[in-house]
C-alpha cells in the first residue's frame, strides 16, 4: 500500500501544471486504446438497455412497448412508499443488510487470516476447497437442511440444547431468532467463497516483510496485526464499498426460502415483497420502480462510503475513485 502511495506521489510531483487537455491526454493514448473494447461492451450491453428504466415512471404495456407506454410520473413510487407492508419491508431490508454487514462481512477476512497461519499446505488446500462448497448449494436446499437441523422436535440443534437442560426453540417461527438465523446461515454458506479474494490479496504480500518481523521478535498475532491486516485492508475497503451498492438487496433467495407469515414482521424484505405483489398483478413498472429506488439508495451509499473511506485513510487515497 505504501508503495502505491509513493508511486502516486511521484507522479503528481512530475505532473507539470497548465497543460491543455489534449496535451495531458496524449501520453496516455495507448491506454485509451486499451480501454476502448471493454468500455464499448459496457456502453452497448449495460447502457444500451438502460432506457428500460423509464417504465418505472410509466404504466408499462407489453403491446405498446417501452417508448409508447403512458407516463404516470411518480405513481409507483408513491404507492410503494405509502404502503405499510412495503415500508416495513424497506425497514427490514436495511436492518438485515446492516446485520449482515456487521457480522458476515468480517468473517471471510478472519478465515483468510487464519488460513494464512496454517503451515500444512495439504490441510490448507483441502480446507479451502471444502469451505467454499456450500456456495454451490442453492438456498432452497440449504433451507430444507436448516428446517431439519432447527426443528424443535427432530432437529440436531434442539437436541443439543435439551442435552444441556434447555427447552427447545422454534427458531424459524420465532421473531427474535429469525434475523440471527439469516445472518448465521449466510456466514455458513458464503464464508469460504468470499474469502477467495482475500486469499489472493494475501499471496501478494512480500515474504521478506514477515522475515524482518520475525527477526524483530514479533509474535504471530503481532505479525497479523502489523503486516497481514494492513496488507489486505485496501481490498477489504473496496469490498465494503462495493457491498454498499447491494445494501437494499438483503438476499431474496435466502429469505424467500426461510420465511413464513409468522416472521414477516422481522423478515419480509423488499425483494420478497415485490415478488409477492407480482403474483397479484405482475407489474413490471412497479418492480422496476422499486428496483430503481434500490439502485438510487445503493448509489448514494457507495458514494458516501467512498468519501468517508477517503477521509479516513491516511493518504486520502483509498476508495474507488
Amino acid at each position: 500500500m505504501s508503495a502505491a502511495t509513493t508511486k502516486r506521489g511521484m507522479k503528481t510531483a512530475q505532473k507539470p501544471r497548465k497543460k491543455t487537455l489534449a496535451q495531458r491526454m496524449k501520453p496516455y493514448a495507448a491506454l485509451y486504446l486499451m480501454l476502448l473494447p471493454g468500455l464499448a461492451l459496457i456502453l452497448i450491453f449495460c447502457y444500451g438497455p438502460m432506457y428500460g428504466l423509464q417504465i418505472a415512471f410509466k404504466d408499462y404495456n407489453i403491446g405498446m412497448g417501452i417508448w409508447n407506454s403512458p407516463w404516470v410520473g411518480m405513481e409507483h413510487f408513491q404507492k410503494f412508499l405509502t404502503t405499510d407492508a412495503a415500508t416495513r419491508a424497506l425497514t427490514n431490508t436495511i436492518i438485515i443488510s446492516a446485520l449482515k454487514l456487521v457480522f458476515s462481512f468480517p468473517m471471510p477476512i478472519l478465515l483468510a487470516l487464519v488460513l494464512n497461519e496454517i503451515g500444512n499446505q495439504a490441510f490448507k488446500r483441502v480446507a479451502q476447497t471444502i469451505s467454499y462448497l456450500p456456495h454451490f448449494i442453492s438456498w432452497i436446499i440449504v433451507a430444507s437442511l436448516l428446517n431439519n437441523l432447527l426443528s424443535p422436535s427432530t432437529g440436531a440443534v434442539n437436541a443439543i440444547i435439551q442435552q444441556f437442560g434447555g427447552s427447545p426453540i422454534y427458531f424459524l417461527a420465532d421473531k427474535s431468532w429469525f434475523r440471527p438465523i439469516l445472518v448465521i446461515s449466510n456466514i455458513w454458506k458464503e464464508i469460504g467463497w468470499s474469502s477467495v479474494v482475500y486469499l489472493a490479496a494475501l499471496s501478494g504480500i512480500d515474504p521478506s516483510l514477515y522475515e524482518a518481523a520475525i527477526v524483530d521478535g514479533a509474535t504471530r498475532v503481532q505479525r497479523i496485526v502489523r503486516i497481514t491486516l494492513p496488507s489486505i485492508m485496501p481490498i477489504a475497503v473496496i469490498m465494503l464499498i462495493l457491498s454498499m451498492g447491494n445494501i437494499m438487496s438483503a438476499g431474496f433467495d435466502q429469505v424467500f426460502n426461510l420465511y413464513s407469515p409468522q416472521v414477516y414482521d422481522v423478515g419480509d424484505i423488499l425483494d420478497t415483497y415485490v415478488y409477492r405483489r407480482g403474483l397479484v398483478d405482475m407489474s413490471y413498472s412497479f418492480s422496476t420502480a422499486v428496483g430503481l429506488f434500490k439502485s438510487v439508495v445503493g448509489l448514494i451509499l457507495v458514494v458516501t462510503v467512498n468519501v468517508i473511506a477517503k477521509r479516513l485513510s491516511p493518504d486520502h487515497d483509498a476508495g474507488l475513485w
Binding site: T83, D84, A85, A86, P261, Q262, Y264, D265, D268, R276, R277, L279, V280, D281
Partner: peptide, 20 residues
C-alpha cells in the same frame, strides 16, 4: 380491481400471523 386486491395480499400476512 387488481389495485385493490393487491391490498388484500398486503394486509393478510399480519392477520394470519395473529391467527397462528
Amino acid at each position: 380491481d387488481t389495485e385493490i386486491t393487491a391490498i388484500s395480499a398486503d394486509i393478510e400476512p399480519d392477520f394470519l400471523s395473529g391467527i397462528i
